[in-house]
Design a protein around this nucleic acid. Structure first.
Lengths: 343, 343
DNA sequence: CGCTGGCACTCAGGGCAGACGAGTGCCAGC
DNA sequence: GCTGGCACTCGTCTGCCCTGAGTGCCAGCG
């Protein structure tokens, strides 16, 4: 654990915040002024030099001011007060924007991402609810014309998954109805993720040996459920990052956008975020090579008790951490609330 | 109608293709060489000068070579041969990639967009099928626990829309069943877009005066159907555009990405594409100010007879039109086929 | 009449040198 | 422990020149 005296703490905060504001290295004179330290620049210099030895700061070349290292940002972030700079009115407007009742489930998440991107000025990423984590509510086989039916699974959150099924001759609507009820009755409440082959075999096994088409239904169930494990990812405000000086060179921007357009990768990143609290990943702390110039601020959101997705921000390591953390927290809360009320 | 002699036609083609290849202005010597014109550069110069007077070419400054104007690209594109440079094997691989049977309906469209972006090296945009244009197949009110039901609309393509409904006491599953059948029976085959308030009033009117909760179902139907008019937009490969010299300056890139991240706007652009053929919009031909540096290559795709969406490419006006048009056409065909077989 | 070589002119881009200034490290002295 | 002073470093900006690609124009030729 690192112990810094008061002056150094102030300096770290000042250097970080000034650098975040201006994107320029911060010199000793400027730091002294901004930190309201009434000592001379020379004194500041020696303090800065010692902090550089600790690894909190660097300077890009001999005659330049200091900039924070990733580790410097980390220490800065860890000593931020927990209080939120975001006031009541902001919370209120988030709620209004997410609470509009005519948003479909996936849509609220997209709206939350757009909102968060707008509030922070960075890119925002959100994973829409995964059916996997939810409880199975019902299966319905709906007759559609002759010899075809629509198989619909509903989760208790209201999420739906459907697929047309071919039927052989001689399947009466009542058969479908009957089967639907049987399956629904026996599977209701099971976590969707637990609907394995074995589980379905128990329920459908005997019947499916009689009716070939049940095989199709089962195959579809397993396949689609497996697929619905891949949550849908929403990205918003990626354009904001293009304005940041660290991504002005096309190759850096390209590498960043390779991530932002790669849903499976983003999904892995998002799903690795722990359930409680707002998590910050700074530069090198990110697993992904292409995110080494970025920081992530992420948190889980829930529908009722159940965790149902992750939302957060991707920005440069030179990020306004305080307001970003506050924005992420509040939007996630608003989103959780919207999910609960829609379920 | 513009008539160009053979030399000028060759020159237009050469200047366009060389400029597309190198992103540099094309000089008279280079054009003569590349166009295999066995006359001296001086002769070429006078031809180029006359084409500049016609408005087909410009030069960025006095001592630079020629670059095509938007109108130059237009004339070039209009005189392209209709034959496709894309061979059978490519078509085959498109079919394979889109035909994988375990793709959900929205997912095929996303996959097509990614494929198209990869093939062309530009950004690709696609509108997923709109329920509006499809025929209503059935409504199902599925009991979920006590006092709640799931209302599901299915279109004949297999697209689904669902929403939970609160029920008052005393609504029996059979009531729901009965109502579902009645509505399904009377509305089947109607285009979803035609499900207006009046139409629903005819069907539900009498009954809904008896049961308050039917009001809710009706309100939801109208609201959700209206919303499903807004097709879901998929964008892929936007990162490729960052590498193009015309979007290297951050402000241009930002303006472009403002469009690429604005779904309603993209939807308007996509829905304005006529139903038949591959359409090209070059630079100034685009309505949107922010697309003035871009060209679009767009085409509709269908499920069976029914048009069901639009797919295409956004790139710089300095675009490889020939191969792009071919790629768009083939991917759209592959997509149409995938839609038909999944419906 | 169309094509050609020659010629003067233009202009973007690269390379170079010098001035500037922000900032540093170090040190002697209070 | 803090301070002012000092020498030094080095990136950035500016002005300058040069180069070379490319142009337009023109007189002359087949």
């Amino acid at each position: 654990m690192l112990r810094l005296d008061a002056r150094r703490r102030i300096l770290l905060r000042t250097v970080v915040e000034e650098h975040v504001r201006t994107a320029e290295p911060v010199g000793s004179r400027h730091a002294a002024l901004r930190g309201r330290l009434s000592v001379s620049p020379a004194t500041i210099r020696s303090a800065l030099a010692s902090m550089e030895e600790l690894g909190l700061l660097t300077h890009p070349h001999t005659s330049a001011g200091r900039i924070p290292t990733d580790w410097g940002y980390r220490v800065y972030v860890d000593m931020l007060p927990k209080a939120d700079p975001l006031g009541g009115p902001a919370t209120e407007s988030i709620r209004r924007r997410l609470g509009a009742p005519d948003e479909e489930p996936g849509g609220v998440v997209g709206e939350a991402a757009r909102l968060l991107a707008g509030m922070t000025g960075y890119a925002s990423v959100a994973a829409a609810p995964r059916m996997q984590a939810q409880a199975f509510a019902s299966l319905h086989l709906v007759p559609m014309g002759e010899r075809r039916a629509l198989a619909v699974i509903a989760a208790d959150s209201g999420a739906l998954l459907g697929h047309p099924v071919e039927l052989p001759d001689g399947v009466a609507p009542d058969d479908l109805e009957h089967l639907s009820r049987a399956i629904t009755y026996r599977l209701r409440g099971t976590r969707v993720a637990d609907l394995t082959y074995q589980r379905l075999e128990q329920v459908l096994g005997e019947a499916s040996r009689q009716h070939r088409w049940l095989e199709e239904v089962r195959a579809w169930l397993l396949r689609d459920l497996a697929r619905s494990a891949r949550s849908q990812i929403r990205v918003a405000g990626a354009r904001h990052l293009l304005a940041e000086p660290e991504f002005r060179t096309p190759d850096r921007a390209t590498r960043l956008f390779e991530i932002l357009e790669n849903e499976p990768l983003l999904e892995r990143v998002l799903s690795s975020v722990p359930e409680q609290g707002v998590w910050i990943f700074i530069g090198q702390e990110n697993q992904l090579e292409q995110l080494r110039l970025c920081s992530l601020v992420m948190t889980a959101y829930r529908a009722g008790e159940q965790r149902c997705g992750t939302i957060g921000v991707i920005g440069p390591t030179r990020m306004r951490y305080r307001s970003t953390v506050a924005a992420v927290r509040h939007v996630a809360e608003g989103l959780s609330e919207a999910m609960r009320s829609s379920a």
